[in-house]
């Protein structure tokens, strides 16, 4: 007999449904604690590696390049940056069509290495360009909870 028997009818193809019934609570960690606490204050923090002479945003406890400790080197980096690259999204993370597409960008905070992903607001997609100066727009102070969502979006600097 063949290893794979041929199905005669499509109704012979059966399946079993299931899921992985887990949920998660992630602590934000030592560097994250600094980063997100400061976010409540409307500030963005980074960490400087003096050996490599660069600033990571978000901050980290270590430099991935030289492995130096950076916990003594947290510093405020301002809330302004530039659009490094961008796109417009028409679907949610799980594949559902959005009514209003959103603009997603990698924003590099001025004077720092790397960047982070966030939304762009108060701007039309056709007007976005590489290197566009943007600034963080925070939620009202009382609504902030120490989350990346404390920044509503970045908007062009007029």
């Amino acid at each position: 007999m063949a290893l794979i028997e041929r199905f005669q009818k499509v109704t012979d193809v059966t399946y079993w449904e299931g899921q992985i019934p887990m949920s998660y609570i992630y602590t934000v960690g030592r560097a994250g604690e600094k980063f997100f606490r400061e976010m409540i204050n409307g500030k963005i923090f980074g960490a400087k590696c003096n050996q490599c002479n660069l600033i990571y945003v978000p901050p980290r406890i270590y430099c991935e390049k030289c492995f130096e400790r950076l916990e003594e080197n947290y510093l405020e980096v301002g809330t302004k940056g530039k659009v490094h690259t961008f796109t417009q999204c028409y679907e949610t993370y799980d594949g559902v069509r959005k009514e209003v597409p959103s603009i997603v960008a990698v924003i590099r905070i001025d004077g720092t290495e790397g960047g982070f992903v966030h939304w762009l607001g108060e701007v039309e997609f056709k007007d976005v360009y590489f290197g566009m100066p943007v600034e963080a727009v925070f939620k009202d102070k009382k609504e902030r909870e120490g989350s990346i969502l404390d920044i509503k979006y970045f908007r062009p600097i007029k």
Binding site: I4, E5, F7, D12, V13, T14, Y15, W16, E17, G18, Q19, I20, M22, S23, Y24, I25, Y26, T27, V28, G32, E33, F36, R37, D94, G146, S147
Partner: peptide
Amino acid sequence: IQKGKVLSVKWTPNLKYAWDNGPALGRYL
């Protein structure tokens, strides 16, 4: 963690599966 002494983020993966039984388990079931 639960009372917010340290910051944390919650997530519940929204994933479901339909595993094909194949001929052997299909017949078994």
